[in-house]
Amino acid sequence: MIRPELVCPAGTPSAMRTAVDAGADAVYCGFQNATNARNFPGLNFTVPELERAVAHAHAGGTKVLLALNTFPPAGKVDLWKEAADTGARLGVDAFIVADIGVADYIARTHPDIRLHLSVQAAASTPESIQYYCREFNVKRVVLPRILTVPEIKLMADEIPCEIETFIFGNHGLMVEGRCSLTNYITGLSTNMDGVCSPAAQVEYIKDDEGNLSTRLGEYTIDCFSCNESAGYPTICKGRYLTPAHDGPYYAFEEPISLNLSTLLPDLMKAGVTALKIEGRQRSKAYVKSVVSAYRKAVDSIMAGQDPQISDLLALTEGQKETQGAFKSKTWR
C-alpha cells in the first residue's frame, strides 16, 4: 500500500505553520483575491507571506499546493496568469486548477510544475479525467464527493493520474464549480469571485428566547432554536418552506461534516494517494486538531495497526458527521 499524502488547509501563514508542525505532507493555500475558491475577508496570503511560507514548509519537508481553482471571467484572465507566474517564482510544488484556460496557460508556461485538477472542475468520469491528463498533463485529480469507495477503485484502474479525495470537512454535494446558489441570492459568484455566502451579506439575529436566524442578503435561510446546533450560512444547507412539505425542511443538504476516518484503510486500498482535509476558512486550532488526528491515523495504518481515530465531532458542522456518498449513495 502506498503511503498517502496528507493534504492540509492553510488559510493564514500561522495556520500553515501549524499544519506543518502537526504533520502535513502538503498544505494548500491561495492568494488574497478571486483566484481561489476561499476568497474570504482577512484570509489567505499576500505575495511576501507566501514566499516566507513556502520556505518554512519546504524546510519542514512539506509541499505547498497553490489553489488557483476559480474560473476567470472574460477579459480578466490576467489575474490568474499573474498568480500562476508568481506561484512559480516562489517555488510552489503544484497548482490546483479548475478552468481549462488556466490549466492550458500553466501547462505551456510552467510545464515543470505539477498540475492538480481541483474538485471545482467536477471531473467525475474516467473520460473527463483522461482528457485533462492528455491535454494538460494533469498529475492528480481531486474527486468530487459523490463517488463510493468501490467506484473510486474502478476509477483508479482507468485513469493515468493520482487520486486525491476529501476525508474531513465540508460534505460538498453540489456539482462543484457549477453551483450558482450564492450568485442567485447575492450577485457574487462562488466560482468566479471565490465567495460562497459572502460575509458582508450574512447576518445573524438572536431573539429574546435564544433562537438564532441566519440571513443571507434579504433572505432568511435558517432558524435554529435555542439548544439546536448551528451550521454555516450557506443556501445549500438552509431550511425552506414549500407547499410540498409540512414546515421548514432541508431542501439540498443539511449542516453536517464529512469524516472518513473509519474508511481510511478502504480508501488507501482503493488507490487513493492523497487525503485532503477541508477548511481553509477554519482556525489554526481546527487545523492542529484535525491534522494531528489524521496524521496519527494514517501512520497507524501504514504500521499495520488499527487506526487510532480521535473524536472530532466537536469540530463538525451542526455537530454531526457522515461518510456521505463514500459509504452509500443513500446517506439521507
Partner: peptide
C-alpha cells in the same frame, strides 16, 4: 479553540457586521 465549532455548538453568538467579525477573527 475553533470559533466555527463554538458557533456550531451555540456557545458563541455573532451579531452585527459579520464581515468585520470574520476579519477580526482571521
Amino acid at each position: 479553540l475553533d470559533g466555527d465549532a463554538l458557533f456550531f455548538s451555540r456557545n458563541l453568538t455573532i451579531t452585527g457586521n459579520t464581515e468585520a467579525v470574520v476579519c477580526l477573527r482571521n
